[in-house]
Design a binder for these strands. Sequence first.
DNA 1: AACGGGAGCAACCGCCTTCTA
DNA 2: ATAGAAGGCGGTTGCTCCCGT
Length: 352
Amino acid sequence: MGRSPCCDKVGLKKGPWTPEEDQKLLAYIEEHGHGSWRALPARAGLQRCGKSCRLRWTNYLRPDIKRGKISLQEEQTIIQLHALLGNRWSAIATHLPKRTDNEIKNYWNTHLKKRLAKMGIDPVTHKPKSDTLMSNDGQSKNAANLSHMAQWESARLEAEARLVRQSKLQPPSANSFQASTSNPVQKSMGQARCLDVLKAWNGVVWGKNDEAAGVSVTVTTGIVGELGSPTSTLSSAAGTNGIMKEESEEEWKQMPENRDEIGNATPFTSNWESEQVALNSSEACSSREFRGKLYGLVTECFLCRWRGMRIVGYTNSGGNDVGVSDYYEDNKNYGNSILNLVNSSPSHSPIF
DNA sequence: AACGGGAGCAACCGCCTTCTA
DNA sequence: ATAGAAGGCGGTTGCTCCCGT
């Protein structure tokens, strides 16, 4: 089946938007909402195609957009999520409040991709390009480990990708897990740190699991003390997805360092959270919104793990402890390996 | 001061998915 | 069930600015 162009191109303006055009678009949307994008240009008095208007709005004019330099914390998040999700910029953007997918994509292509490449890490696979690059001291072991983790992660991501593709029955709207909601149900969902989402997913969304009816997962998470990443601060979750809060870095700095008698890091008990998320299967299967949230949880779960959140308590709907897998530790180590490499190569170093 | 090259980013293009009649 | 419309997404382009020569 052929596709008609999104709009009649004859006589329509292209190229950079003028302040007058911005003003027209802004004024129209503020008064009427965008409605049908195709119909919008004519109604707003713009000589643009609807697609161009939509893009201008979502990438530039929307009021909830933060412009300016990408912070270190955001940078780390992008790297982590890119390793998990690949070039799925919109999915990555849902975890970076007020940033657009286009901005993240641009930042990746102009900054992070080059930086990783210069460090000898393939920006596509996040695998080291060559072990010889890090043949000195303990780094060779680290590289080997990294390679192993990357392979493991790659296989897992393939499975995840399939799930996520199917999950996008409702694409996660921008920041679907974030503070914009006033819905208490959404808030409680947003607070959920980690859960066996894939298991829940299989059961809830497609009804393949007998336990699907009323999946209830209690998750207790904590920040693992040995991590050096400020992004590990997850205690600010109330009402937001909590992960990207800008003030997290400050909170991190203020955190005490807990160590046991032999110097091993111990979790910061004060930052632990225990939450219960009830997933009702019948509601889930009929609610595309719910599926969208679950999709967000898939990503968030991996992110939590990667940032060193240790899943210490994990029970199924029957209250049975289902344990903790090395799986989580493997991912944490892999993510930290990349982050350590990045962090140990500041932008002012010769490698850049 | 002029020029060239690279970086950064806004915007476009085309494909894919989802919705709807 | 199907076709067309609409929206969403990722890749790419091209313009502008900056910096070094």
